[in-house]
Design a binder for these strands. Structure first.
Lengths: 107, 107
DNA sequence: CGTGTAAGGAATTCTGACACG
DNA sequence: CGTGTAAGGAATTCTGACACG
């Protein structure tokens, strides 16, 4: 039960410059959303931020919500809800996988 | 018949620093393989190189071949062969798609 | 041929702050 | 609250070259 699959989509490899170009958001905004705990880039040894394509998607969602006048705090609440749902789905998936592995279930 | 799908894998978004870390190759080597026409990063307006995950895969292949004593020129020849094969496959695929679209063929 | 390195400049990124509101 | 900007420093990237071989 290891955890290092992490496809390209989740690899934190892009610096803030391209993220800004891809999303169309200013670097200021991107850093601010991090300050508000909406996004979590990794850091290199010397501190430059690294983002993944998943982060790009999250940023696009944030941008949409902000446009609709939603405040960062609200956005954060929405996101943690989704996160919980996903976690539940993942757990269910894992349990099914376990069952299949042990009992060789057929559909 | 448009052409802008380009998944994450093919998007040129990483600068040479992370590429070096991911592949374990020195920046010098990476730039040299470009000089030898084995790899083709894009450039930002001011000239910094941008690579994709596909490029990472290609670099790993190159690294293996170099280790085996293969010269860059030979590696290039090998790659163009594969490229041609792929192109043929793509053409075949496209033609089949066309046929299916026009005659609604069933398997 | 393939790769390391020192060299100097240009571009990137970082943080903390002031500003407006 | 969300975002722009000027500020100064540190880290990144670029090119052309010399070196060894």
């Amino acid at each position: 039960m290891s955890t290092d699959k992490k496809s390209y989509k989740d690899k934190k490899v892009m610096s803030i410059g391209i993220i800004s170009k891809i999303t169309g958001l200013s670097e200021r905004k991107i850093r601010y959303y991090e300050e508000r705990k909406l996004i979590f880039p990794e850091r290199t040894e010397r501190g430059t931020r690294k983002y993944s394509f998943s982060d790009v998607e999250i940023l696009m969602e944030i941008a949409n919500q902000i446009e609709d006048g939603v405040q960062t705090y609200e956005i954060k609440k929405e996101m943690s809800k989704k996160q919980k749902t996903q976690t539940k789905d993942d757990i269910n998936k894992m349990i099914r996988g376990q069952l299949n592995a042990h009992f060789h279930l057929r559909k």
